[in-house]
């Protein structure tokens, strides 16, 4: 699949933002961290900015954005429509929660607390809908798996936890041990989930050129695709990266998104925590690029690929 940059930015930024708001609200409500209103406001504003930038960026890949408002209309069937609805529904609850923290401080009233919890739930639901857009496509076997939503949610929470630790370091000026431990735990979880995914997509499976053309008892080779220059299908689905470049990028992704941030967090220093959070975002951009570049759509079979 052709990795559209706007979609990479959207899924990484909004994923981190939703993860941040969820962990922050749950930490605030359960009382383990953070407990300063300046950190809550700072984290909430950062999350909203990231989510908003992501959502705006996602409209950039639309070829006809003037009809984007119609995307709320098929909630019953379309995951993309559900994502749009929940993403918009998320805003009022989060704004009420943040306003409550702004005016009442850390000891918020029941209504504000309830709004906070609802916004945390909506954040996770929106992230799940985003992942289901990809996981629901039977045409792309690398995506059509329960590992896809697990990946999106685990990596969203992981990047959110690092952002939360970074906000704590920047705003409060000191780190909270429990946040660092949570971030390190989520880094390990994210790495495990990602490695499991990489092994899983490595297994040969799915449709072949034989089932695509219906000639299941003989070898089939493409002689001519019927057009001399690339069309929409070639550009959208024919995106191919050399295998050795993929391996190098996978290693880069694992180092940037998981290994280096983990090592930086071990130092327990404020500056290094901020750097770790930035590294995770960069690493996840590589991870999302690979998620697209390694996905092989079945249309490729008609253009000569022997298997997906």
């Amino acid at each position: 699949m052709h990795p559209a940059f706007s979609v990479l930015v959207f899924t990484v930024m909004s994923g981190a933002g939703y993860g941040l708001i969820t962990l922050m609200v749950l930490g605030h409500m359960s009382g383990f961290a953070p407990q300063e209103d300046s950190v809550l406001i700072g984290g909430g504003v950062l999350a909203l900015v990231m989510i908003t930038v992501g959502l705006l960026s996602s409209t950039l890949h639309l070829a006809n954005p003037k009809n984007a408002w119609r995307s709320f209309s098929r909630f019953k069937t379309s995951w993309l429509s559900r994502e749009a609805v929940f993403a918009v529904l998320f805003y009022p609850f989060t704004l009420i929660y943040l306003a409550g923290v702004w005016f009442q401080g850390v000891e918020v009233g029941t209504f504000v607390a309830l709004c906070g919890l609802v916004s945390a739930v909506l954040a996770m639901v929106t992230l799940f809908c985003t992942s289901m857009i990809y996981a629901s496509l039977k045409t792309i076997r690398q995506w059509n798996s329960s590992l896809t939503p697990v990946n999106y949610i685990a990596l969203g929470l992981m990047s959110g936890s690092l952002l939360l630790a970074a906000v704590q370091a920047l705003v409060a000026g000191e780190l909270a041990a429990v946040q660092l431990q949570m971030a390190m735990g989520l880094l390990v979880l994210g790495a495990v989930v990602k490695v499991v995914y990489l092994f899983w997509i490595g297994k040969p499976a799915g449709s072949t050129i034989k089932t695509a053309t219906g000639f299941t008892q003989a070898s089939v080779r493409l002689l001519d695709q019927g057009h001399t220059s690339n069309g929409f299908l070639n550009n959208e689905f024919g995106y191919t990266v050399e295998a050795n470049k993929l391996v190098r990028l996978r290693l880069l992704m694992l180092a940037l998104a998981f290994v280096m941030p983990f090592l930086l967090l071990l130092a327990a220093s404020s500056a290094l925590t901020v750097i770790a959070a930035l590294l995770v975002i960069a690493g996840l951009l590589v991870e999302r690029w690979l998620f697209f570049a390694e996905a092989r759509h079945v249309v490729r079979l008609f253009h000569g690929d022997q298997r997906t």
Partner: peptide, 11 residues
């Protein structure tokens, strides 16, 4: 709106 999702869903 030209989001391409249907073309992704079409095998």
């Amino acid at each position: 709106m030209g989001c391409n999702l249907c073309s992704w869903a079409c095998p």
